[in-house]
Amino acid sequence: MLAKRIIPCLDVNAGRVVKGVNFVGLRDAGDPVEIARRYDAQGADELTFLDITASSDDRDIILHVVEQVAEQVFIPLTVGGGIRAVEDVRRLLNAGADKVSMNTAAVQSPQLVAEASGKVGAQCIVVAIDAKCVSAEGEPARWQVFTHGGRKPTGLDAIEWARRVQALGAGEILLTSMDRDGTRIGFDLPLTRAIADAVDIPVIASGGVGNLAHLADGVTEGHADAVLAASIFHYGEFTVGQAKDFMRARGIEVR
């Protein structure tokens, strides 16, 4: 049976790993290659790098990071952040990324998803969806897609957008709850479940993990195919191995 994946996420700023709390107040957590190797040794199923480098002068640094990591770590690597054109996708894949994740660019130009998917294959294209709950209390839940690190509302319904990116040629969805990101109180499970059940492609749950039970809940309650977390792993609180032991004990298939 296919294992549920555990994916540590490394936010990278100008070549260094950092982790945002609600995308504000960054703390340096170290060297990407060292961290990637540690996660590989712990049994991470995949790694995701989100390049949050703001300065366009430093944008190529991520390519060197990917090259260095890909020379030493032999598990799938996903890289997101700052992708605007098919050429950006190609450069990252050539540097050693296996998948490229698009967020704002996909919203601004859905055709880019189709074009990139047509050129490099759906298996390389991840669409990241940042969603925030916009329904009033007592109403049925609705989530809207936000871009620019959660600052800009798009007016798009998250479920409809997920179905649309699948149709455009995305091979996977990285779903982040903007309400939960950085809170450590667990995934937005109704959101995760709504998206995971709405599409045929794999969904990675992200945003809000504070303990190992949260990871397991993402799979059992949220129907996620993979779970992503950053801070609980970065600061040595839990290892990926401990996360797997916990999930296994809950009856979840893991590697």
């Binding site: 049976m1 296919l2 294992a3 199923d45 091979g171 045929d200 492609i201 195919d225 993979a226």
Partner: peptide
């Protein structure tokens, strides 16, 4: 369709035996 009736996603993506 997986063991407990869960729909299996395509692409088959991840670690399998």
């Amino acid at each position: 369709i997986g063991p407990n009736g869960v729909r299996l996603k395509v692409p088959h993506m991840g670690w399998n035996r």
